[in-house]
Amino acid sequence: MGRLWYFAQAVLGILFRHPVLGTSVIPVLADGRIVLVRRRDCGKWGLPGGMVQWGEDVHTTAKRELAEETGLELIKVLRLVGVYSSPERDPRIHSICIALEAEVRGDLHINDRYELSDIKAFELSAIPFGNLAHDHEQQLKDYLQNLTVLA
């Protein structure tokens, strides 16, 4: 019985006491605009992205989340912008986010109306700083400064 309890504790610890891994995609259209989505949970704009599912790699997650949230196709990952791991970065859970810049194409449309209320391509000068979800403002500022960050 002791070994079973030890195993159960280990599994519960992995599930509930370790951060989850996710991605943020900075989708760049051919004309240089960046696509953001408006989240229903907080009403703020944010980068498309989400949690890595069991059996997925980060690239596959980025492609899937981008398509699910924006209807866009990920053509090429251009660079790693950063790895963001602050326990305060997402008020829902402790998550580690890998932010990627990506070349994308396609027509904008929301596939997940439960999670998102709007989608828009922004000129760099029109990004709604001050109204971005989670730590996406920091991710975009790091991107615009051409930084690669471990935070």
Rank of each mutant, 00 (worst) to 15 (best):
M1K: 10
R3I: 15
R3K: 08
L4E: 08
W5H: 13
Y6R: 15
A8R: 04
Q9D: 14
Q9P: 00
G13R: 10
L15Y: 03
L15V: 11
F16G: 14
H18W: 08
V20C: 00
G22Q: 11
G22M: 09
S24P: 00
S24K: 03
S24D: 15
P27D: 02
V28P: 02
L29W: 03
R33E: 01
I34D: 11
V35Y: 04
R39E: 06
R39M: 05
R40E: 01
C42S: 11
W45D: 05
G46P: 03
L47Q: 09
G49F: 00
M51V: 12
Q53D: 13
G55Q: 06
D57N: 15
D57L: 11
D57Q: 04
T61I: 08
A62D: 04
K63S: 11
R64K: 15
R64N: 14
A67P: 01
L72K: 09
E73Q: 12
E73I: 07
E73T: 13
L74G: 06
I75F: 05
K76A: 06
K76E: 15
V77I: 14
V77R: 06
L78V: 04
L80S: 14
V81Y: 02
Y84Q: 09
S85M: 12
S86G: 10
I93Y: 12
H94A: 10
S95G: 05
I96M: 07
I98V: 15
I98H: 07
A99V: 05
A99R: 12
L100K: 01
E103K: 13
V104R: 09
V104C: 04
R105I: 06
H109E: 07
R113T: 12
R113K: 12
Y114K: 15
Y114S: 15
Y114W: 12
L116K: 06
L116F: 10
L116I: 03
S117C: 03
S117T: 00
S117K: 00
D118I: 00
I119V: 14
K120C: 06
F122I: 00
F122K: 03
E123Q: 08
E123T: 03
L124I: 14
L124D: 01
P128A: 08
F129W: 07
F129C: 14
G130M: 07
G130N: 10
N131L: 06
L132F: 02
A133V: 02
A133D: 09
H134F: 09
D135V: 13
H136L: 01
E137G: 15
E137T: 05
L140F: 01
L140V: 01
L140S: 11
Y143D: 06
Y143S: 11
L144Y: 00
L144H: 05
N146F: 07
L147F: 09
L147E: 13
V149P: 12
L150E: 05
A151W: 08
